[in-house]
Design a protein around this nucleic acid. Structure first.
Length: 500
RNA sequence: GAUCCAUUAGCUCAGUCGGUAGAGCACCUGGCUUUUAAUCAGGGUGUCCGGAGUUCGAGUCUCCGAUGGAUCACCA
């Protein structure tokens, strides 16, 4: 059955071969017929990269080098040719003369296509226009490209194709490679930053029996042998806290989490989350850590902590602003929620200001709606939004001076949430009550509400020290530091709907 | 999930009022021993995203569908 389907696909594909693709297949067949099948070659010794040759021209002039890369541009004349070769570091020109490589080799070279991968042995020199080049004395075809590359002038602009065929995008739009190099450096710097502070990196399960630690709809999968449904994790929180109970004082994990929700320029179904937990500190400690991390990572990766995002300059150097959610709503909307004590008052306010709420929303939920509606977009420079209502913070400790609110903060930059942290709730009795409220919400149809995690409750009953916890969306952070407007520009292979 | 926009050659894009499908690059044939998005002469290679409808006639108008983008909803 499956084979039949594949055969059908293959038949369709054969029909899709256009003239250019057919020409290249014919060229490959000719190579094979004359004993020059490039696919039998297993290795090629590369001694230099384009960048090395260009950066060290003075030492390398007249020296023999061996380079390899993809033909990107080709200028063929009767008995001599120029071409540009793309290797992992960039472009370099090669000069191929018939009287240097021999008649047969030159004839072969003339029919190589843009996109083919060749190895070149030759001598470093400068052309009369001062371009650093390699004069070939030997050219080897290492791989035939059977499909043509996009055009040299305009490259590949079709966003759909760029995401679906990222390999093409990387070849043709080489500047995007920088984004992914930076992404790698950012994650490396985060690890270094945390390791230097004595944090231990751990790995916890991706397959969960309970989807908790965040408000999100999970992906559901099935384990055949156990015959149970499992959830792909939506957060790292609940396992990392168990490790604090177990005696690790400082732990972190950088891992993929999965949320079965809408996609947008800022949301991908799978994304990378950093979560860390530190015993014997609170959300103030987490604020200091967050501020330092953003500053240091930016400095070490970009060489500066004053960055440009879109048309705004963001200063990660000066102390981040700190404001409570109640004060933010007061500042940007002129409404003082600290004086709102009943749900009726809150609903009346919401009605007056055309803020839509759900029947199950309490005062704290409505406060949060006001914040999202009227304040969020104003928090462009780094701002810690603090002291969220307990209703939207089921895992955070209450503020001792006002139990309606929690010791929690979110870091906002360019109007977006970049971090979320709190003094972790370690009161097992309070935690049990909050889980039960979540369970009621879930029973009432809220698909994002948490289940009761009895094992976590047991862990808390064993005893978790006062702990600060922090989560940072790595993709958002990479977007910020690479001035990327879409999350898909910082993901090598963003989730795409299959065609047909 | 809703709304708007896009989809034409391998790539980037034109296509007027509904009247036989166009350009540049790429590709093919030939020339050219220092080119620089090489160049000179010649060649158009197509499921106009798919399907249905209106019409004498549809790339163009209408409807249904696919994929993508933006905005909204949800969220990080």
């Amino acid at each position: 059955m499956e084979e039949n389907l594949n055969n059908e696909e293959n038949i369709i594909r054969e029909e899709d071969i256009n003239e250019q693709m057919q020409v290249r297949r014919n060229k490959l067949q000719d190579l094979k017929n004359s004993g020059k099948d490039p696919y039998v070659i297993t290795k090629f010794d590369v001694t230099h990269h384009s960048e090395t040759i260009i950066d060290n021209y003075d030492e390398l002039e007249g020296q023999e080098v061996s380079i390899a890369g993809r033909i990107m541009l080709k200028r063929v004349m009767g008995k001599a040719s120029f071409a540009h070769i793309l290797d992992s570091k960039g472009l370099i020109q090669i000069y191929v003369r018939k009287d240097e490589v021999g008649d047969d080799s030159y004839t072969d070279f003339k029919v190589y296509d843009i996109g083919d991968i060749i190895g070149v042995k030759g001598v470093v020199f400068k052309t009369k226009t001062d371009e650093i080049s390699v004069k070939a004395n030997e050219v080897t075809l290492l791989c035939k490209a059977l499909n043509p590359l996009p055009e040299k002038k305009h490259g590949l602009k079709d966003i759909d194709l760029r995401y679906r065929q990222r390999y093409l995008d990387l070849i043709v739009n080489r500047e995007i490679k920088d984004t992914f190099v930076k992404r790698s450096l950012i994650i490396k710097e985060i690890r270094k930053f945390l390791d230097d502070k004595g944090f231990i990196e751990v790995e916890t399960p991706v397959l969960h029996t309970i989807a908790g630690g965040a408000a999100a709809r999970p992906f559901i999968t099935h384990h055949n042998t156990l015959d149970i449904d499992l959830y792909l994790r939506i957060a790292l929180e609940l396992h990392l806290k168990r490790l604090i109970v177990g005696g690790f004082d400082k732990v972190y994990e950088i891992g993929r989490v999965f949320r079965n929700e809408g996609m947008s320029p800022r949301h991908n179904p799978e994304f990378t989350l950093l979560e860390l937990y530190e015993a014997y500190t609170d959300y103030n400690g987490m604020m200091d850590l967050t501020e330092e991390m953003f500053k240091v990572v930016s400095r070490n990766v970009l060489g500066t902590s004053k960055i440009v995002y879109g048309d705004v300059e963001i200063d990660l150097e000066k102390p981040f602003e700190r404001i409570s959610m109640v004060d933010a709503v007061k500042k940007y909307k002129g409404i003082d929620f600290s004086k709102i004590t009943s749900l009726e008052e809150a609903r009346k306010l919401a009605d007056e200001h055309e803020v839509e709420y759900e029947p199950h929303h309490e005062v704290g939920d409505i406060l949060n709606l006001f914040f999202e509606e009227f304040c969020e977009e104003h928090l462009v420079q780094p701002t810690f939004l603090m002291n969220h209502p307990v209703e939207i913070s089921p895992l955070a400790k209450r503020m001792p001076e006002d139990p309606r609110y929690t010791e929690r903060f979110e870091l906002f930059i360019v109007g977006r949430e970049h971090a979320n942290a709190f003094s972790e709730l370690n009161d097992p009795i309070d935690q049990r009550e909050r889980f039960e409220i979540q369970a009621q919400l879930k029973a009432a149809g809220d698909e994002e509400a948490n289940d009761v995690d009895y094992d976590l409750l047991n862990a808390l009953e064993i005893g978790m020290p006062p702990t600060g916890g922090l989560g940072i969306g790595i993709d958002r952070m990479v977007m910020l530091l690479t001035n990327s407007q879409s999350i898909r520009d910082v993901l090598l292979f963003p989730t795409m709907k299959p065609r047909d």
